[in-house]
């Protein structure tokens, strides 16, 4: 009885984790809170649905096309806006990402049409029995995708030269540039990575809902909260936060209230901030003069 909702939580947790990873990568390398993660993911995922439904391409090819769209969007946003903002304040940058939400939400129905579309699951049928719970292959695949991508990203961040460049940029952009790290390339690819992660999150959650301009709103909110819960100082904190949020909200929905479960969890997180303001694995943030 416990296993079934737990596995389902891991599935949604994977979606939130991917979206949250995108937000935290952009935050660490650019110091910009990426409020448009959900809407950019929505835009690329809608592109996937569009290619699939209109051009009739198979799902895997559509997802590849979506990766292309997401990378291009990420490049475009960084190249044409973010890197020209060096003088803008932190709030200014945040407001830019809020403006991006409006642009993508407005653009999606114009380019892809106003009719809601559907995205099929990767694996349409079949399930395994596990301790009295039946889990669909697709759910397992989603969980595996989430965990594998997270692990691969962590491996790259911790053990490769690219990862070192990203971590150096994250700790101090100016010092990193003085050391000869191409910080502009790092930020460029951090936006592209965030775009791809958002697109994947969208494609994974899409089969359970319709593809409309607002279908990623919940993912965006939960991913931001995963970052708050996990803390903004590490790359892995938000991933832990994402899975915790998914488990917590699923069980609250199941055992407390099916309507208000998610809202209840938001309140719990707000209360949690009272006691651990820097998140689960966050260090104390000290502002230097």
């Amino acid at each position: 009885m416990i296993i079934q909702p737990f596995i389902r939580s891991l599935e949604t947790g994977s979606v939130y984790a991917l979206a949250a990873l995108g937000i935290i990568i952009v935050w660490r390398t650019n110091l910009v809170m990426h409020f448009a993660q959900g809407s950019m993911g929505m835009f690329s995922a809608t592109a996937v649905a569009f290619v699939l439904n209109r051009a009739g391409l198979p799902l895997w090819l559509s997802v590849l096309a979506g990766v292309g769209v997401a990378v291009l969007l990420g490049f475009a946003v960084d190249f044409s806006i973010i890197r020209r903002l060096k003088k803008a304040t932190a709030v200014g940058k945040e407001i830019i990402t809020l403006g991006l939400i409006m642009v993508f939400l407005g653009l999606a129905p114009i380019i892809f049409g106003t009719d809601p579309m559907q995205l099929p699951k990767f694996i349409t049928s079949g399930d395994v029995q596990l301790g009295g719970a039946s889990i669909s292959y697709n759910a397992l695949l989603n969980i595996i995708i989430g965990i594998v991508i997270t692990l691969v990203l962590f491996y790259i961040l911790q053990n490769t030269k690219i990862g070192l460049a990203v971590r150096a940029t994250a700790s101090s952009e100016i010092t990193a540039r003085l050391m000869g790290i191409p910080t502009r390339t790092v930020t460029l690819f951090s936006w592209a990575t965030a775009g791809v992660l958002g697109m994947l999150a969208g494609v994974m959650i899409a089969p359970t809902v319709m593809v409309t301009p607002s279908f990623m709103n919940a993912v965006q909110v939960n991913a931001l909260f995963a970052c708050v819960l996990g803390g903004f100082q590490t790359f892995y904190g938000p991933v832990i936060g994402a899975y915790l949020i998914a488990i917590c909200s699923n069980f609250l929905k199941l055992y407390v209230s099916s309507v208000w479960g998610e809202q209840l969890m938001y309140l719990i997180i707000l209360a949690f901030l009272l006691f651990r303001p820097n998140g689960l694995v966050g260090k104390t943030y000290i502002k230097k003069v």
């Binding site: 403006g99 991006l100 999606a108």
Partner: peptide, 19 residues
């Protein structure tokens, strides 16, 4: 008649003004 037009209008204005 495009429904998303006002959003794009405000979104682009925000970005252009801040930049």
């Amino acid at each position: 008649s495009i429904s998303g037009l006002p959003y794009i209008f405000s979104g682009i204005l925000i970005i252009v003004v801040i930049m």
